[in-house]
Simulated scan of single mutants.
Amino acid sequence: MIRSLRPLLACVSVVGALALFPSAAHAADTLGDALARLAPSADPKVIGLAVRAAECAQVQGGAPAERLAVIDYSKPSSEPRLWVFDTVNRKLLFQELVAHGKNSGDATATRFSNAPDSLASSLGLFRTSDTYTGKNGYSLRMTGLEPGVNDQAMARAIVIHGAAYVSEAMARVAGRIGRSWGCPAVRTAVAHKLIDALKGGQMVFSYYPDKRWLGSSQYLKCTGGQLAKAEARAGGQSGT
């Protein structure tokens, strides 16, 4: 579970990001390691960064989340590059194709933007919000948490929704799936269940090896002081 303050954390040493342990059976694993094993086609480093970012958000006062979606835009759109994890029970819920924005690239995304009308995807950490039914059907709003990187997501209507142009058949024939106006669109057959798994304050992490973002994201570099304070608060709550 991605939880910032639990008594069990009082005796856990922190290296880089909080290592969370929903049960004693997982004591030998960090959450990142456990999730990476569930998704062998994913880059374990990307999974680790996603866990670090989500945990850092909670150390900084964010609400706990029980689901984590990871999108790796460094992979071509013809391959599954979206994973949704249940971090409480350490389960992989979805492994899916996902579209990138029309102006982010062709088969592979290489350009990202936070600007309105850019028709490009955005990087960074998002928190999901409410659902609605619009022109793309059942959809999930997201709030971008990173100033200057994705904080225009709500204004840009960057949402998760289903789309007919996201299909394995198209990927096989064209070598890529269709592109969105910046939204991480998924297959229509899975959209409703995937959205229901992620709605209501869960975390979404969109990755690309962009050096500027990687070097500046506040969610990828929690300081030792922040983490030590979180541990101290957990220790105080547990009475140790």
Results as ranks from 00 to 15, higher is better:
M1Y: 12
L5W: 03
L5Y: 11
L5E: 15
P7I: 08
L8T: 13
L8V: 14
L9E: 15
V12C: 00
V12P: 00
S13C: 05
S13F: 02
V14W: 06
A17T: 14
A17G: 10
P22D: 10
P22S: 09
A24S: 12
A25N: 07
H26M: 08
A27I: 12
A28W: 09
T30I: 06
L31F: 07
L31M: 15
L31Y: 07
L31S: 15
G32L: 01
A36W: 01
R37I: 08
P40W: 11
D43S: 13
G48Q: 02
L49C: 06
A50T: 13
A50D: 13
V51L: 01
V51C: 05
A53N: 04
Q58M: 13
G61P: 00
A65T: 06
A65Q: 07
E66C: 02
V70S: 04
I71V: 15
D72I: 02
S74M: 01
K75F: 07
P76A: 08
S77C: 06
S78T: 05
E79F: 05
R81N: 11
R81V: 12
V88S: 10
K91F: 08
L92R: 10
L93C: 11
L93S: 10
L97I: 07
G101Q: 02
G101R: 00
G101K: 00
K102C: 03
K102S: 13
G105V: 00
A107S: 13
T110F: 12
T110H: 06
N114F: 06
A115C: 02
S118C: 02
A120P: 00
S122P: 00
L123V: 08
L125E: 12
F126C: 09
R127N: 05
T128L: 01
D130K: 03
D130H: 09
T133V: 14
G134N: 02
G134C: 03
K135V: 14
Y138L: 05
V149I: 15
N150R: 01
Q152L: 03
A153F: 03
A153G: 08
A155F: 04
R156A: 10
I158A: 13
I160G: 07
H161A: 11
A163P: 00
Y165L: 07
E168V: 13
R172T: 11
V173L: 05
V173K: 01
A174G: 05
A174K: 09
R187C: 04
T188Y: 07
K199W: 12
M203E: 09
V204K: 01
S206E: 12
Y207G: 08
Y207I: 09
Y208D: 09
Y208L: 10
P209I: 10
P209T: 11
D210I: 03
D210C: 06
K211C: 02
S216I: 02
S217I: 05
S217A: 09
L220N: 08
C222A: 15
C222G: 13
T223S: 15
G225E: 14
Q226H: 05
K229M: 12
K229C: 10
E231W: 12
R233V: 15
R233D: 14
S238N: 03
S238Q: 07
G239D: 11
